[in-house]
Design a protein around this nucleic acid. Structure first.
Lengths: 382, 382
DNA sequence: TCTCTTTAGTCCATAATCTGTACATAATCC
DNA sequence: GGATTATGTACAGATTATGGACTAAAGAGA
């Protein structure tokens, strides 16, 4: 639905700043002339806008660049990581994490603090997080970085700034305030991991479903570079898609949810870690292989439903599914291929995430960068 | 992702025309002063914009209206159905339909032409449709209506303007051109029926999942007043969500899809029509009741998956499920309630569609109105 | 080496659009 | 009937983009 506020002169300029910055972000460094061509604005206007962006330190001019064969070479304008950065945060079951990412997508800092957050006290954990944030922002500012905002990934469902339910933390209906006075957002771990894949993954694509295998199983759908959140922000709960309506009971109250078959607990059984499962798999352990196959089948079934409902461009398996991908790929792909049948041209490509367990923190920082690029004037006060 | 074109003076005005028109559409008739308040524009600007809209005939001034207690009364500006209307079209298995709906959502004309389109020749059917369109647009123009565009609902999957697959028509990969030189769109029957519910349903809401029970089962998700289409436009294929991974084979190639349990063929069995099933149900026929209960259970399972993945605000049952709602409500709601369990505060409300079998044609016209309101300057040449 | 051509980027007068204040209008209140 | 209050319009002023002229910087060709 169209935004309801009218456009005034200042918002026109704000919008054009966003258009220029977004174009640089989307299609790489360009000279002012090329930007004028791409945006449909005149060279004059682009020059003026780029001037503001340079002053704000969000873009930088490179040395002269050969554009065509002849003529004056232009100076390419690219995103600059010099001055502006954002803060990604994560509360997970056994650690707190924070990272500072600059506008050029370089990870400038990273901190992980082990912590046992199972059934923890929200206030205490958030206080701990606040400490981590203070520490890392102070250090970032010492190196001359301006942090423009923060986002927090949590293993649970989020509505607005309300953490509805994080079963593995034992949290319910926790209102999370920003740990600083920076602009702040909180979102589901899977949604933000999907953004991590979008911003830092190697197979850059703007349409995919990121599947986050953890103790719970979540998914984040990215369509056209934006996370689809549903009505309340609760979309993507892949872990409770029904695989077998009369299957074993799930902690959610339902039966035969995907999580029962392919959650971390189901996969590991009595094994202590994913690494131990991997080594068993590598040694050809039959029970481990069977467990993986079972999980893969269930995942194939749930993903079939997900593909029919969400129509993702690709599917990226992440979290604990990444190290297990060698053993999951075949059953999952087979399940998808068999079941999707003639309904679509080809089933979505299945890929493995390559950014590892940092996906969510990085994605949190990416979310803030995304907002900065979408609305530079508001964020930077231009 | 942000649009990539810069904003110029004329697009600022175009945008503001859309803002004013959209505000009138969304929150009803208002005086210029109220519109200024709502949009954040000044009274002067709103007056000027409303002037253009009046001239284009898309809005009309009412008689003076008491706004507050004292002061000069304002004249409310409301959408006008006088001059501008849109065309909704539908190709279905046993009929062609067309309707003309004006900007004030009044259905001005409606035509249905029985036709046996099962395994029909696309070219012939489209030619037939073209005839219907010529007839109805000629008549509309005779009454002084200007048709600004048309949209076509088809029982199948649509990518762009390509009809990928309409199994019940026997069509595959048909490129559908507009039946006139008007702006034209084609979309899935379920998506457009959802828009029909949005535009013409009595329980106005901007977030819901419309479930279209026909021979196939589709669903259209509306979030914030917009249909969610997924990456290729294939989202919402509820009929092939997996209910039982080892269930009976489905024509799609999968097994245990919802359609196998709750599609029209499964519900009717050997009965000829939905009406005959209803009368059996009313007379308490045990086999009919059992069939409905089975279908309701399956629907509850599939909708559970859909709720987890899509997070709809409400669920509206339409198509053949509307007349069967009395018998479906309990098993569906029970299935949803039991399975969704503690994952969300309350499960989405279950409702029955009240606009009947016209949902898709009406929604097609609604889609065109939606576009007109979103971009009046482009469509009307202001 | 000098000039021509070509492209990049800036300058400045002009145009489009919105803002803000002042004002005419129209109703109620007392 | 005058005071009050709110609607809608007029007009000067502000903001921003445009477009053509101009400067800058490089290669091509003589």
């Amino acid at each position: 639905m169209a935004a309801s506020r009218g456009v005034r002169h200042d918002s026109m300029r704000a919008r054009n700043l966003a258009v220029v910055l977004g174009t640089i972000h989307r299609s790489g460094p360009h000279t002012r002339a090329a930007l004028a061509e791409l945006t449909g604005l005149t060279k004059t206007t682009v020059s003026s806008l780029v001037g503001d962006l340079l002053e704000a330190g969000v873009v930088a001019e490179s040395d002269a660049v050969r554009a065509g064969e002849r003529g004056r070479p232009g100076k390419a304008v690219s995103l600059s990581g010099r001055r502006v950065a954002t803060l990604g945060l994560e509360i997970n079951i056994d650690y707190l994490a924070a990272c500072v990412v600059d506008l050029s997508r370089t990870v400038r800092m990273r901190r992980t603090r082990p912590a046992d957050n199972r059934n923890s006290d929200p206030a205490a954990t958030l206080e701990e997080l606040r400490g981590l944030v203070k520490e890392i922002t102070a250090e970032a500012e010492r190196t001359g970085l301006r942090i423009t905002g923060a986002a927090l990934a949590v293993p649970g469902t989020v509505e607005g700034d309300l953490l509805r339910s994080a079963p593995h933390l034992g949290w319910r209906d926790v209102r999370v305030e920003g740990p600083t006075d920076l602009p702040f957002a909180i979102d589901n771990e899977a949604n933000l991991a999907a953004l991590g894949e979008l911003w830092f993954g190697s197979r850059a694509a703007v349409d995919f479903l990121y599947v986050s295998g953890e103790i719970g199983i979540g998914a984040g759908l990215v369509v056209g570079g934006t996370v689809f959140r549903g009505t309340l922000g609760l979309a993507g709960e892949l872990g409770h898609v029904v695989v077998r309506p009369d299957g074993p009971g799930c902690r959610c109250g339902g039966r035969g949810c995907l999580e029962v078959y392919a959650g971390q607990d189901a996969l590991l059984g009595t094994l202590p870690t994913v690494a131990s499962l991997v080594s068993l798999l590598e040694s050809g352990d039959r029970r481990a292989l069977a467990a993986c196959r079972r999980a893969g089948h269930a995942l194939g079934v749930a993903l079939t439903s997900a593909v029919h409902l969400l129509d993702p461009g690709r599917i990226v398996l992440g979290g604990i599914y990444a190290p297990l991908y060698r053993w999951l790929e075949e059953p999952v792909a087979a399940g998808l291929g068999d079941r999707l049948g003639q309904m679509r041209g080809t089933p979505p490509t299945l890929l493995v995430s390559e950014i590892g367990p940092d996906a969510a923190v990085l994605g949190a920082a990416g979310l803030v960068i995304q907002r900065l690029i979408a609305e530079p004037a508001g964020v930077l006060g231009l």
